[in-house]
Protein backbone atom coordinates (compact mmCIF):
# COMPACT_ATOMS: atom_id res chain seq x y z
CA UNK A 1 0.00 0.00 0.00
CA UNK A 2 1.19 3.54 -0.81
CA UNK A 3 0.08 6.56 1.18
CA UNK A 4 0.54 10.15 0.02
CA UNK A 5 1.81 13.02 2.14
CA UNK A 6 0.98 16.51 0.89
CA UNK A 7 4.52 17.87 0.49
CA UNK A 8 4.08 21.50 -0.52
CA UNK A 9 5.71 22.56 2.75
CA UNK A 10 5.87 21.41 6.37
CA UNK A 11 6.62 18.39 8.55
CA UNK A 12 6.63 15.70 5.85
CA UNK A 13 9.65 13.70 6.97
CA UNK A 14 8.41 12.57 10.43
CA UNK A 15 5.26 11.09 8.81
CA UNK A 16 7.36 9.36 6.19
CA UNK A 17 9.46 7.81 8.95
CA UNK A 18 6.36 6.57 10.84
CA UNK A 19 4.91 5.04 7.65
CA UNK A 20 8.24 3.45 6.70
CA UNK A 21 8.50 1.81 10.14
CA UNK A 22 5.06 0.29 9.46
CA UNK A 23 6.24 -1.00 6.07
CA UNK A 24 4.23 1.49 4.05
CA UNK A 25 5.66 3.50 1.18
CA UNK A 26 5.08 7.26 1.44
CA UNK A 27 4.59 9.32 -1.70
CA UNK A 28 5.41 13.04 -1.55
CA UNK A 29 2.47 14.75 -3.26
CA UNK A 30 3.13 18.17 -4.79
CA UNK A 31 1.20 17.82 -8.05
CA UNK A 32 -2.25 16.41 -8.79
CA UNK A 33 -0.93 13.44 -10.79
CA UNK A 34 1.05 12.25 -7.78
CA UNK A 35 -2.23 11.40 -6.00
CA UNK A 36 -2.78 8.49 -8.42
CA UNK A 37 -2.25 5.15 -6.70
CA UNK A 38 -2.33 6.57 -3.16
CA UNK A 39 -4.58 4.69 -0.73
CA UNK A 40 -4.90 7.80 1.45
CA UNK A 41 -3.41 11.23 2.01
CA UNK A 42 -1.85 12.86 5.06
CA UNK A 43 -2.07 16.67 5.13
CA UNK A 44 0.80 17.45 7.51
CA UNK A 45 1.60 20.30 9.88
CA UNK A 46 3.19 23.45 8.56
CA UNK A 47 1.75 26.82 7.64
CA UNK A 48 -1.80 26.59 6.29
CA UNK A 49 -1.49 29.95 4.50
CA UNK A 50 1.62 28.75 2.61
CA UNK A 51 -0.07 25.49 1.63
CA UNK A 52 -3.25 27.29 0.51
CA UNK A 53 -1.19 29.63 -1.63
CA UNK A 54 0.53 26.73 -3.41
CA UNK A 55 -2.68 24.66 -3.69
CA UNK A 56 -4.28 27.58 -5.50
CA UNK A 57 -1.25 28.32 -7.69
CA UNK A 58 -0.98 24.70 -8.84
CA UNK A 59 -4.69 23.96 -9.23
CA UNK A 60 -4.71 21.26 -6.55
CA UNK A 61 -8.04 22.12 -4.98
CA UNK A 62 -10.32 20.13 -7.28
CA UNK A 63 -7.98 17.07 -7.42
CA UNK A 64 -7.83 17.09 -3.61
CA UNK A 65 -11.62 17.26 -3.33
CA UNK A 66 -12.02 14.44 -5.84
CA UNK A 67 -9.42 12.34 -4.01
CA UNK A 68 -11.11 12.98 -0.65
CA UNK A 69 -14.47 11.91 -2.07
CA UNK A 70 -13.03 8.39 -2.61
CA UNK A 71 -10.07 8.02 -0.25
CA UNK A 72 -9.25 8.77 3.40
CA UNK A 73 -7.49 12.00 4.35
CA UNK A 74 -5.88 12.85 7.67
CA UNK A 75 -5.22 16.48 8.50
CA UNK A 76 -2.65 17.23 11.19
CA UNK A 77 -2.62 20.74 12.71
CA UNK A 78 -2.35 22.94 9.58
CA UNK A 79 -3.79 19.99 7.63
CA UNK A 80 -6.89 19.98 9.88
CA UNK A 81 -7.32 23.68 9.07
CA UNK A 82 -7.30 22.90 5.34
CA UNK A 83 -9.87 20.11 5.83
CA UNK A 84 -12.28 22.12 7.99
CA UNK A 85 -15.68 23.41 6.87
CA UNK A 86 -14.95 26.76 8.47
CA UNK A 87 -11.82 28.54 9.75
CA UNK A 88 -11.60 31.36 12.32
CA UNK A 89 -8.84 33.73 13.47
CA UNK A 90 -8.62 34.81 10.73
CA UNK A 91 -11.31 33.43 8.45
CA UNK A 92 -9.72 31.77 5.40
CA UNK A 93 -10.42 29.38 2.55
CA UNK A 94 -10.78 25.70 3.49
CA UNK A 95 -11.99 22.59 1.69
CA UNK A 96 -14.89 21.43 3.84
CA UNK A 97 -13.77 17.79 3.89
CA UNK A 98 -14.95 17.49 7.51
CA UNK A 99 -17.91 19.18 9.24
CA UNK A 100 -15.73 20.99 11.79
CA UNK A 101 -14.90 24.61 12.60
CA UNK A 102 -11.26 25.22 13.44
CA UNK A 103 -9.78 28.27 15.18
CA UNK A 104 -6.16 28.97 14.20
CA UNK A 105 -3.47 29.62 16.83
CA UNK A 106 -6.17 29.16 19.47
CA UNK A 107 -3.80 28.54 22.37
CA UNK A 108 -1.50 31.46 21.51
CA UNK A 109 1.94 31.84 19.97
CA UNK A 110 5.01 29.58 20.22
CA UNK A 111 5.64 30.45 23.90
CA UNK A 112 2.24 28.83 24.62
CA UNK A 113 3.04 25.61 22.72
CA UNK A 114 2.85 22.60 25.04
CA UNK A 115 2.93 18.84 25.51
CA UNK A 116 -0.02 17.18 27.28
CA UNK A 117 -1.37 13.71 28.07
CA UNK A 118 -4.59 12.77 26.33
CA UNK A 119 -6.81 9.68 26.41
CA UNK A 120 -7.06 8.35 22.88
CA UNK A 121 -10.18 6.28 22.22
CA UNK A 122 -9.76 4.41 18.95
CA UNK A 123 -12.63 2.23 17.68
CA UNK A 124 -12.38 -1.35 18.97
CA UNK A 125 -9.58 -0.55 21.43
CA UNK A 126 -9.64 0.36 25.12
CA UNK A 127 -8.84 4.07 25.74
CA UNK A 128 -5.15 4.62 26.27
CA UNK A 129 -3.24 7.60 27.58
CA UNK A 130 -0.67 9.08 25.25
CA UNK A 131 1.46 12.17 24.75
CA UNK A 132 0.24 14.94 22.44
CA UNK A 133 2.47 17.74 21.11
CA UNK A 134 0.64 21.02 20.42
CA UNK A 135 2.59 23.64 18.42
CA UNK A 136 0.87 27.00 17.81
CA UNK A 137 -2.08 24.65 17.66
CA UNK A 138 -5.59 25.24 16.33
CA UNK A 139 -8.69 24.31 18.31
CA UNK A 140 -11.78 22.53 16.99
CA UNK A 141 -14.51 24.89 18.19
CA UNK A 142 -17.52 23.15 16.62
CA UNK A 143 -18.17 19.76 15.08
CA UNK A 144 -21.27 18.18 13.57
CA UNK A 145 -23.11 15.68 15.84
CA UNK A 146 -22.14 12.66 13.71
CA UNK A 147 -18.44 13.39 14.23
CA UNK A 148 -16.71 10.82 16.43
CA UNK A 149 -14.44 12.43 19.04
CA UNK A 150 -11.34 10.27 19.60
CA UNK A 151 -9.67 12.53 22.16
CA UNK A 152 -10.34 15.75 24.04
CA UNK A 153 -8.32 18.26 25.99
CA UNK A 154 -9.98 20.64 28.46
CA UNK A 155 -13.36 19.83 26.94
CA UNK A 156 -12.37 20.57 23.32
CA UNK A 157 -11.93 17.79 20.75
CA UNK A 158 -8.29 17.36 19.60
CA UNK A 159 -8.74 14.22 17.47
CA UNK A 160 -11.92 13.60 15.46
CA UNK A 161 -13.14 11.17 12.84
CA UNK A 162 -15.91 11.67 10.32
CA UNK A 163 -16.66 9.09 7.66
CA UNK A 164 -13.30 8.07 6.21
CA UNK A 165 -11.51 11.24 7.35
CA UNK A 166 -9.42 12.07 10.40
CA UNK A 167 -8.23 15.34 11.94
CA UNK A 168 -5.87 15.96 14.84
CA UNK A 169 -4.83 19.36 16.18
CA UNK A 170 -1.66 17.90 17.73
CA UNK A 171 1.35 16.18 16.14
CA UNK A 172 1.43 12.36 16.58
CA UNK A 173 4.42 12.29 14.18
CA UNK A 174 6.53 14.08 16.82
CA UNK A 175 5.83 11.56 19.62
CA UNK A 176 6.82 7.97 20.23
CA UNK A 177 4.27 5.37 19.18
CA UNK A 178 2.20 4.85 16.08
CA UNK A 179 -1.40 4.23 17.17
CA UNK A 180 -2.88 7.02 15.03
CA UNK A 181 -0.75 6.14 12.02
CA UNK A 182 -1.87 2.50 12.35
CA UNK A 183 -5.47 3.62 12.71
CA UNK A 184 -5.22 5.75 9.56
CA UNK A 185 -3.69 2.84 7.64
CA UNK A 186 -6.56 0.61 8.82
CA UNK A 187 -9.05 3.11 7.41
CA UNK A 188 -7.05 3.27 4.14
CA UNK A 189 -6.93 -0.54 3.89
CA UNK A 190 -10.64 -0.96 4.62
CA UNK A 191 -11.51 1.69 2.05
CA UNK A 192 -9.37 -0.09 -0.54
CA UNK A 193 -10.94 -3.47 0.18
CA UNK A 194 -14.37 -1.87 -0.19
CA UNK A 195 -13.23 -1.12 -3.72
CA UNK A 196 -14.01 2.56 -3.54
CA UNK A 197 -12.88 4.34 -6.67
Amino acid sequence: MRVGILALQGAVEPHRAKLAALGVEAVAVRLAEELAGCAGLILPGGESTTMLNLIEAYGLEEPLREFAARRPCWGVCAGSILMAAEVENPSQVSFGLMPITVRRNAYGRQNESFIAKIDLRLPGEPPRSQEAVFIRAPRITRCAPETRVLAELDGAPVAVEHGRHLATTFHPELSEGDRLHRHFLTICGAQRLAGAG
Binding site: Q9, G10, A11, P14, G46, E47, A78, S113, F114
Partner: peptide, 16 residues
Protein backbone atom coordinates in the same frame (compact mmCIF):
# COMPACT_ATOMS: atom_id res chain seq x y z
CA UNK B 1 10.16 18.57 26.40
CA UNK B 2 11.01 22.26 26.07
CA UNK B 3 13.58 21.61 23.37
CA UNK B 4 11.21 19.23 21.55
CA UNK B 5 8.62 22.00 21.28
CA UNK B 6 11.25 24.42 19.98
CA UNK B 7 12.54 21.96 17.37
CA UNK B 8 8.91 21.05 16.60
CA UNK B 9 8.19 24.55 15.30
CA UNK B 10 11.33 24.38 13.13
CA UNK B 11 9.96 21.09 11.69
CA UNK B 12 6.79 22.95 10.68
CA UNK B 13 8.85 25.58 8.83
CA UNK B 14 10.63 23.02 6.64
CA UNK B 15 10.32 23.36 2.89
CA UNK B 16 9.33 27.01 3.25
Amino acid sequence: QGLRLKVGLAEMLKGG
